[in-house]
C-alpha cells in the first residue's frame, strides 16, 4: 500500500464529494412516481418557479429537504461510526454502541405515551424527548466513569451495552402500558424514517451537526496516533482521556440529534466505515471524511429506494399498493446486511 499523498487524498475525497454532489443534483427529480415529475421537470421548474409552481413545490419543497435530511443523517452516522470504530478499537462499534439509540427511543416512546403536544422552537416534543433521552444515556455513562482512574474502552463498551439493554426493557414497559394507537406510533417511530416538513425543518439540526463534523474530522491526526495505543499516543503529546471524551461528546450529540429527527436508522454507521477501510485503508485523515460523505450518499440513495420500492412492487405484481413510503431503516438493513456479510467473508479469507 502506498503512503498517503496529497494527490491520493484529493482524488479519494474528490470522488466522494462528486457522489454527494450527484445525489444533490438528482435529489429533486426522485420521489414517488405518480406525480410524474422527473429530473428534467424538476430543474426546469427551478429555473422558472413562477411558471411551474406545482412542479417546483414537489421538487424543492418536498423532495429536496428530504434529500438534505438524509444526507445530514448519513454523514453523521457514517462519520460517527468511523470515529467509534477507531475509539473502541472494535469494528463492531457503531454510533449506537453506547446506547444512544435506545435512550433516544425510550425518550420518544415516553413522549408518545404521555401524548405530549408541546413544541419548542419548532421541535416536536417527541424529537425533544428523544434527544434528551439519547444525551441522558451518555450523561449516565460519564457519571459511571467519573472518578475511575482511566476508562478503558472495554468497560465503556460494556457500560453502553448495559445501558442500551436497560433502556430496551423500559421501552417494553412503556409499550406495554400504551394503547393500540400509541403502540402503532411507537413501532413506526422505531423503524426510523426520514420525514421532513419543510426546508427550514430539515436544516434545523445543521448548526449542531456541522460543529460536530468539523471537530471530529479535525481530530483525525490525533485518532491516527490513538490507533497506535494509549501509551504511544500519550507520549506523543496527546491527552488520551480528553480525546476520548471529545469524541464521545460530539459524536453522541450529533447522533442524538439524528435519532431525534429520524429515529434509529441502522447499518449506515456499521457498513459504510467498513467499506471505506477496505477500499481506502484505515488512515483517519481519509477514513473520517470519506465515511461521512459516503454515509450521506448511501443513506440518501437508500431513502430513494424507500420512496420508490412500493411503487415498483406494485408495478411488478400488477396491484396498486399503498402510496406510502417504506421506513428508511428497513431499506438500509436490506441493502446493508448483504454488503456487510460479503465484506466479512472477504475479510475472513
Amino acid at each position: 500500500m502506498k503512503p498517503l499523498t496529497p494527490t491520493r487524498y484529493a482524488a479519494s475525497l474528490g470522488a466522494c464529494l462528486f457522489l454527494v454532489l450527484l445525489v444533490v443534483i438528482l435529489g429533486p427529480g426522485i420521489g414517488q412516481s405518480e406525480s410524474g415529475i422527473g429530473f428534467l421537470e424538476a430543474w426546469r421548474a427551478w429555473l422558472d418557479p413562477d411558471q411551474r409552481p406545482t412542479d417546483y413545490n414537489i421538487a424543492f419543497s418536498l423532495r429536496f429537504p428530504r434529500t438534505l435530511l438524509a444526507l445530514q443523517a448519513g454523514i453523521t452516522l457514517g462519520l460517527c461510526g468511523a470515529v467509534f470504530q477507531i475509539l473502541f478499537r472494535n469494528p463492531l462499534a457503531t454510533p449506537y454502541t453506547l446506547g444512544i439509540s435506545s435512550g433516544g427511543s425510550l425518550g420518544a416512546l415516553v413522549a408518545i405515551r404521555l401524548g405530549l403536544q408541546l413544541e419548542l422552537w419548532g421541535i416536536t416534543s417527541v424529537a425533544l424527548c428523544a434527544f434528551v433521552g439519547a444525551v441522558s444515556v451518555i450523561g449516565l455513562i460519564f457519571l459511571f466513569a467519573r472518578g475511575l482512574r482511566r476508562l478503558t474502552t472495554t468497560e465503556l463498551l460494556l457500560a453502553g451495552v448495559t445501558m442500551g439493554l436497560f433502556c430496551s426493557a423500559m421501552m417494553m414497559l412503556v409499550t406495554y402500558l400504551s394503547t393500540e394507537r400509541q403502540t402503532f406510533d411507537m413501532v413506526r417511530w422505531m423503524m426510523g424514517s426520514i420525514v421532513s416538513i419543510s426546508l427550514q425543518d430539515s436544516l434545523m439540526n445543521l448548526p449542531l451537526l456541522a460543529i460536530s463534523w468539523v471537530v471530529l474530522i479535525a481530530l483525525a491526526r490525533s485518532l491516527n496516533q490513538y490507533m497506535m495505543g494509549d501509551e504511544i499516543s500519550a507520549t506523543r503529546g496527546i491527552n488520551v482521556n480528553g480525546l476520548q471524551i471529545a469524541c464521545i461528546v460530539f459524536a453522541s450529540l450529533a447522533t442524538g440529534a439524528i435519532v431525534a429527527s429520524c429515529g434509529p436508522i441502522g447499518f449506515v454507521g456499521l457498513v459504510v466505515p467498513q467499506i471505506v477501510v477496505l477500499v481506502l485503508g484505515r488512515d483517519c485523515r481519509l477514513l473520517l471524511p470519506c465515511s461521512a460523505l459516503l454515509g450521506g450518499a448511501f443513506l440518501a440513495i437508500c431513502d430513494w429506494f424507500a420512496q420508490l420500492a412500493l411503487g415498483w412492487m406494485g408495478n411488478i405484481s400488477g396491484r396498486t399498493l399503498s402510496s406510502a413510503t417504506l421506513p428508511t431503516g428497513v431499506v438500509t438493513a436490506i441493502v446493508g446486511v448483504p454488503i456487510f456479510l460479503v465484506l466479512l467473508r472477504r475479510r475472513a479469507k
Binding site: M1, K2, P3, L4, R221, N224, Q225, M227, M228, G229, I232, R236, G237, I238, V277, G281, R282, D283
Partner: peptide, 19 residues
C-alpha cells in the same frame, strides 16, 4: 505495540513527526 492494522509503513514512521 499495536501492529495489526493495515497502514503503510512509511506513514507509521511519519506519524512519529506528530509532536
Amino acid at each position: 505495540p499495536q501492529s495489526d492494522f493495515p497502514l503503510p509503513v512509511a506513514d507509521v514512521v511519519l506519524m512519529g513527526r506528530f509532536p
